[in-house]
Design a binder for these strands. Structure first.
Length: 599
DNA sequence: TGCACCAGCGCC
DNA sequence: AAACGGCGCTGATGCA
C-alpha cells in the first residue's frame, strides 16, 4: 500500500519532530533556529558501500542531523550545494558546542568533507565510559547507552542500510532523526551524574557551554578534537626503509625456517607441538600455564639455549615478529603515511589503545621506519620515571617524595635501601635489580614473581630468599607503600570491590588487589599525558602536528624552521600538566629532535 | 569455512 | 592465600 509519504516528492516533507532539508533556501531558517542555543546535537550518516572498510578520506557524508531541544533537521548533503553546506557548518559550529555519540567519527568526516573543525564537544560515548568506572561489561554503543541512561530502546537496524541511494526511505530519515532524540535524553541524565560531587570548576569554554564540572570529563572532552587531528595527520613512513627491512628479514626467515623444518618435524609456531617436543623428546621440565598446558615462551626456552633447536626456534620467532610488524605497518601505508586509529579510552584506566596499525607497540628496532619528510622533524618527548613519581604522589610516601625533590636517582636509592650499600656505592647490577623492584613491588608483585620478573626483564638472577629480603626492606623504607597495600588488602577482604581514583579524579572499580594498586597509577599517567597534549594543542600553530602518543610519550611532527618554538610550547605544556597533577613531586621529561622516531 | 579462545610477544 | 597492570596482532587449535 502506498503511503502519503511515498506519493510526495521528498522535498516537501516535514515530519512531526524533524525537518528534512534538501533545498538551500531552507538553510537560513535552520541557522536561525540553531543559533538560539549554546550547543547543537549532531549525528551523521556516511555513504559507504562497505562499512567495515569505511575510508575517511574518500567516503562522503550523506546526512547531517542537527538539533536543539526543540527542533531536528536532517540535512541531505547529496541534495545541497557543497559550498553552501560548508559555510553553513562553519557558521553554525563557531562558538557553539556539539553533543554527539562517538564524535571522533563524525568530526573526522566533517573535517575531510568540509574542512570544518569543532573544538567544543560533549561525547556521550566518552561520558558513558567515564561513568562506568572502567567496567568491562558495560557496553558503550548508542543503543546500550540509550538503554542505560535514558531507559529507552533504539532500533539500529538501519545503521548499515544503503545511504548512497538518491532517494532515502522514510524509515531511514526517521532513523537518522531518532538518534538526535536519544542524545537529548542521554545528555541530560549524564550531566547530573558527571557533576555529582563537583562544584563549579575553572570556567573553561567547555564547562560554560555544557555546564560540566567534572575535571576528568572536561579533560576527555577537550582531548577529543585533538585526537581527531592526530588520526587525520597520520605518521610519515619511509617506505624504502620499510621494504628493505622486510626483504632482509624475509630472507633470514626463509633460511631459518628451512633449516628448522629440515631437522625437526614440528611447527615452530605451535606452542603445543614445541612444548611436547621439548618435554617428550628431550625430557625437559617445562612450567605450565594457568590452563595447564606447557609453556614454551622464549623466557623459558632461554634456559636451554645450548640446544640447537631451541636456539633456532627463538631466532625464528624473533624474525617472524619483526616481519609481522613490518607487514602490519605496510598494510596501512597510504601515500607515504599510516593513519592509525586510537580508542580514546581504550583501557579501563583511561589509557588509549592504538590500532590499524598499532603504533604503541612498534619494536625499538623498527622505529626507524618512521621518518619525516624533507623540511620536517619529529619532536619526541617523554616523561621520565612517571609512574614512580605518580606513585610517590599518590601514596604521599615521604622518602620517595624527598628523593625526587632532591633530584636523586630513585633506582639507585632503592638499590641502596634493599642491599644496605651506601648510595654512592651502588653497582650497575644493583641498580638494574632495583629497577625491577621499583616497578614490580609498588604494584603488588610477590617475591616469587619478582625472581622471574627480574630475570626475564632485567637479566638479573636472584634467589627467592633474596627476593623476600628485598621485599621486606623495600616496604620498611617506603612505609606508605606498605600501608597503602595493607589498607587496600583489608578493604577487599570485606568488600567485593573497591573504588579507586586517579590524581585527577577518574573513578575506577577494582575487584582484585593488584588492579586496585595498579589502576590509580596507570590512570593518573593517562590523565597527565592527555592534559599535556591538550595544553600543547591549545598553544600550537599550524606548523606542527601531533602524530603519535604512547602512554608517556608525545610525538610531534614540526616544520623545521619552527622547531625551537614548538619545543618551547611543548615543554611548557608538559611542565604545566605535571604541576597540575603532581603537587608534591617534581615532574621530569626528555625532549629530542630527530628526523627518525628514535630516542 | 568461520568463529572463539589461547599463547606468545611487541610496547608502556 | 596470593596477586603488577594495560593494550593489539598473529597464528594454532578446537568446535560448529
Amino acid at each position: 500500500m502506498k503511503s502519503l509519504f511515498d506519493s510526495l516528492p521528498q522535498e516537501q516533507i516535514v515530519y512531526e519532530g524533524f525537518k528534512y532539508i534538501t533545498d538551500e533556501k531552507d538553510i537560513p531558517s535552520v541557522i536561525k533556529e540553531l543559533e538560539k542555543d549554546k550547543y547543537i546535537y549532531l549525528d551523521t550518516e556516511v555513504a559507504t558501500k562497505d562499512l567495515d572498510n569505511i575510508d575517511v578520506f574518500s567516503d562522503k557524508i550523506r546526512l547531517i542531523q542537527l538539533g536543539n531541544e526543540e527542533k531536528i533537521f536532517v540535512i541531505d548533503a547529496f541534495k545541497l550545494n557543497q559550498t553552501i553546506v560548508t559555510s553553513f557548518l562553519k557558521d553554525i559550529f563557531r562558538d557553539r558546542g556539539v553533543i554527539g555519540h562517538n564524535l571522533k567519527f563524525d568530526l573526522k568526516f566533517l573535517k575531510t568533507n568540509y574542512n570544518v573543525s569543532v573544538d567544543t564537544v560533549f561525547d556521550t560515548m566518552i561520558a558513558s565510559q567515564i561513568l562506568s568506572k572502567g567496567s568491562e561489561t558495560d557496553r558503550h554503543s548508542l543503543k546500550a547507552v540509550s538503554n542505560r541512561f535514558a531507559g529507552e530502546d533504539i532500533d539500529k537496524k538501519l545503521q548499515k542500510s544503503d545511504w548512497t541511494s538518491s532517494t532515502l526511505t522514510k524509515d531511514q530519515l526517521i532513523y537518522a532523526a531518532e538518534d538526535i532524540k536519544a542524545l537529548r535524553k542521554i545528555f541530560k541524565s549524564m550531566l547530573d551524574r558527571l557533576n555529582e560531587g563537583y562544584t563549579l570548576q575553572k570556567s573553561s569554554k567547555i564547562s560554560q557551554i555544557f555546564n560540566l564540572h567534572n575535571p576528568v570529563a572536561l579533560l576527555e572532552m577537550a582531548f577529543l578534537p585533538v585526537l581527531v587531528d592526530i588520526e587525520l595527520a597520520g605518521m610519515s613512513v619511509n617506505i624504502k626503509v620499510l621494504n628493505s627491512l622486510l626483504e632482509e628479514n624475509e630472507k633470514t626467515f626463509q633460511n631459518l625456517y628451512f633449516e628448522f623444518k629440515k631437522n625437526y618435524q614440528i611447527d615452530p609456531f605451535s606452542p603445543q607441538q614445541v612444548a611436547n617436543y621439548l618435554v617428550n623428546k628431550l625430557n625437559i621440565k617445562l612450567p605450565k600455564t594457568e590452563k595447564g598446558s606447557y609453556s614454551s615462551q622464549d623466557s623459558v626456552l632461554k634456559n636451554y639455549i645450548d640446544l640447537e633447536e631451541v636456539r633456532l626456534l627463538i631466532s625464528i620467532r624473533t624474525v617472524k615478529k619483526i616481519i609481522d610488524k613490518l607487514r602490519e605497518i605496510k598494510g596501512f601505508v597510504k601515500d607515504g603515511r599510516v593513519y592509525g586509529e586510537f580508542r580514546q579510552i581504550g583501557a579501563s584506566t583511561g589509557r588509549m589503545a592504538s590500532m590499524r596499525p598499532n603504533l604503541q607497540n612498534i619494536p625499538a628496532s623498527l622505529k626507524k621506519v618512521f621518518q619525516t619528510e624533507k623540511g620536517y622533524k619529529f619532536i619526541i618527548a617523554d616523561y621520565s620515571q612517571i609512574e614512580l613519581r605518580l606513585a610517590a604522589e599518590y601514596t604521599g610516601d615521604e622518602n620517595m617524595i624527598k628523593a625526587f625533590s632532591e633530584g636523586l636517582d630513585l633506582h639507585r636509592l632503592t638499590a641502596s635501601v634493599i642491599t644496605g650499600r651506601r648510595y654512592e656505592d651502588v653497582s650497575s647490577e644493583d641498580r638494574k635489580l632495583a629497577k625491577a623492584i621499583n616497578f614490580g613491588l609498588i604494584y603488588g608483585m610477590s617475591p616469587k614473581s619478582l625472581v622471574e620478573y627480574a630475570k626475564v626483564n632485567y637479566d638479573v638472577e636472584i634467589s627467592i630468599d633474596e627476593a623476600k629480603e628485598f621485599h621486606k626492606n623495600f616496604f620498611e623504607y617506603y612505609k606508605n607503600f606498605g600501608q597503602w597495600h595493607n589498607t587496600v588488602k583489608s578493604y577487599l577482604q570485606k568488600h567485593r570491590n573497591i573504588e579507586v581514583s586517579t590524581l585527577l579524579g577518574r573513578k575506577l572499580l577494582a575487584y582484585r588487589f593488584t588492579d586496585a594498586v595498579n589502576y590509580p597509577i596507570q590512570g593518573s599517567g593517562s590523565d597527565l599525558l592527555k592534559m599535556a597534549v591538550v595544553l600543547y594543542y591549545k598553544n600550537k600553530d599550524e606548523s606542527s602536528k601531533i602524530v603519535n602518543l604512547v602512554h608517556d610519550e608525545i610525538v610531534i611532527e614540526s616544520q623545521e624552521d619552527s622547531i625551537e618554538k614548538n619545543v618551547e610550547i611543548l615543554k611548557e605544556a608538559m611542565e604545566k600538566a605535571g604541576k597540575r597533577v603532581l603537587k608534591k613531586v617534581p615532574v621530569a621529561f626528555e625532549v629530542n629532535i630527530s628526523n627518525v622516531w628514535e630516542k
